[in-house]
Design a protein around this nucleic acid. Structure first.
Length: 491
RNA sequence: GGCGCAUUCGUCUAGUGGUCUAGGACACGUGCUUCUCAAGCACGUAACACGGGUUCGAUUCCCGUAUGCGCUACCA
């Protein structure tokens, strides 16, 4: 099934599939970016193609190396390995746009020479005035073409005078069709676009132009990106056509939305991938969850590993409408993954989420994790929920009292428990034996009457795992110490 | 304002011209289990934006309206 699909795509292009993730390092890796990367990665891997990372840092003001690092770190965490990219290299590098200025310059000159682009000397003030005028007439605000037909001499003269000039691309008026893998045919009227600026100057290309050049130069076959780029697509296609580039397939992903259906922003929840990592979400949770935002497998399966996604993913099944990011479902998914993990593996994930001292007693840590993972939603929950395994902090003595029992009745029950526990040898101090030893006692005095004070005595908490599990984890000596402490607390 | 995209339970979504009394998941509610919490199990509440067509029949096709979002930068 996948094999045959694979074949179809390769035949259609007659060349290997190459996708790219092309973020701007102007901020930390965003959830939307992570999903774009995932779909690109999946598509490339499914078709035996290549997945390329390209850093779009033409905006030198806003681009920062630390953001590039954050993006690469994020991809690594999610296990989206890329075949070509900055530092890693590849046949079509460099992979940072700031290092490809010569390439853009060549194409820019070509466009200028062929009269498909021209220098524009209009000032920002002039442009703003034009825009206002057009808007007030109810027209699409586009460049009026003041500098479109300047004579060669005039251009030369102004350039020599040192006048500031941007480079505009001539948009020919005609209808243009975008074939989107997800949305089908989309028509645009190029006449409404107006001549766009493709470079601030010969050495400073802008997004639409640089991207179009790179997609061609890097032999990208499929551009999979957010819906926010849909309106840019005709511009990029037009630039490609002017330069004689081959056609590229496009797929525009629906946006990830905040709970009020607005664009995902810091106002409502964390937007960067790293925030979620720091908050204790697992890599596999994020991958799985992000995949389900705007995509769904054929069957009703919801929990899918990266490998399963690789099997199941189909770009045609991607949703067209935006998807609200539902943190509750994310928590449920994360809890589900945590529960499903082996305690030893979970301990590794917990590394940076717990105090160093807890690592000293590995045996206890593993036991505590095995017990607590059943009720954790996030890795951060362990620190609060499992502290009592390592050290019992002070608690309200009243907490020991079950319903309307008297303190002395509670004390009596705890004494009975101690007597029974004393009889069990250290080596047999496991949950089965403990339960067996205390069951008949519980039947005599009542389960709640016995187990509630015992559980609170060993955990110090209103809510906690069952007492037998705790006692086994902390061992006989510590258990007796804590029960004794509970008895003293009550008097 | 212009252009573009979208619209199934609160949310993520399945689905199709008659099988829809619209399916699943999260959340929520009730119950079971139970010393507490969690998990688990059972049950339940809850949706085809609206208006016109097309059709024997429309949630599904077409057109409008509304609403939301995106683009409309010498950002990407």
């Amino acid at each position: 099934m996948i094999e045959s699909h694979k074949k179809t795509v390769q035949q259609a292009h007659n060349k290997p599939v190459r996708t790219r993730f092309a973020p701007s390092p102007t901020g930390p890796m965003h959830l939307g970016g992570a999903r774009t990367a995932l779909f690109n990665w999946l598509f490339a891997r499914q078709h035996n193609g290549k997945f390329i990372l390209r850093i779009e840092d033409t905006d030198i003001e806003r681009s920062k190396p630390e953001y590039e690092r954050d993006i690469i770190e994020g991809l690594k965490w999610l296990n989206f390995d890329f075949d070509e990219g900055p530092d890693k290299g590849g046949e079509f590098g460099p992979y940072r746009q700031s290092e490809r200025l010569d390439i853009y310059e060549t194409y820019l000159k070509k466009l200028l020479d062929e009269n498909k682009a021209y220098y524009c000397f209009c000032t920002k003030e002039e442009l703003e005035g034009d825009r206002q005028a057009m808007m007030s007439q109810g027209l699409a605000p586009k460049y009026g073409g003041r500098c479109r037909n300047l004579s060669k001499d005039e251009i030369e003269k102004r350039l020599n005078e040192g006048k500031n000039a941007v480079i505009r691309f001539k948009i020919l008026e005609h209808e243009i069709e975008v074939h989107d893998l997800i949305r089908g045919k989309i028509k645009f009227d190029a006449g409404l676009i107006g001549d766009i600026i493709i470079a601030k100057n010969i050495k400073s290309p802008l997004f639409n132009f640089a991207g179009a050049v790179d997609d061609y130069e890097m032999k990208i076959t499929h551009v999979i990106r957010g819906e926010d780029h849909l309106s840019n697509t005709p511009k990029q296609i037009l630039i490609g056509q002017a330069l004689g580039f081959e056609e590229i397939k496009y797929a525009h992903l629906p946006l990830i939305l905040a709970p009020d259906r607005s664009k995902l922003s810091k106002r409502y929840l964390d937007t960067s991938l790293n925030d979620y990592r720091c908050k204790g979400y697992l890599s596999q949770t994020m991958v799985n969850f992000i995949a389900l935002l705007g995509w769904h497998p054929k069957d009703e399966k919801e929990i899918l590993s990266l490998e399963e996604l690789l099997q199941e993913f189909e770009i045609k099944r991607v949703q067209k409408a935006g998807a609200v990011f539902n943190i509750e479902k994310l928590d449920w998914l994360n809890a589900s993954y945590i529960r499903g993990m082996e305690a030893v593996d979970l301990v590794k994930e917990l590394e940076n989420f717990i105090p160093d001292e807890w690592h000293k007693n590995k045996k206890l840590l593993i036991k505590a994790v095995a017990i607590e993972k059943e009720r954790m939603k996030k890795l951060t929950d362990f620190k609060e929920g499992a502290d009592f395994f390592f050290e019992l902090s002070d608690y309200e003595p009243k907490l020991l009292i079950w319903k309307d029992m008297t303190p002395s009745a509670v004390t009596d029950n705890l004494r009975l428990v101690m007597i029974e526990l004393e009889k069990i040898p250290e080596i047999d101090f496991n949950r089965e034996n403990l339960e067996a030893a205390l069951m008949f006692l519980a039947e005599a005095v009542g389960k709640g009457e016995l187990f509630w004070p015992l559980r609170v005595g060993v955990s110090g908490k209103q809510f906690s795992p069952p007492p037998f599990e705790i006692m086994e984890a902390i061992g006989k000596e510590e258990t007796l110490k804590r029960i004794d402490r509970a008895i003293k607390n009550l008097s």
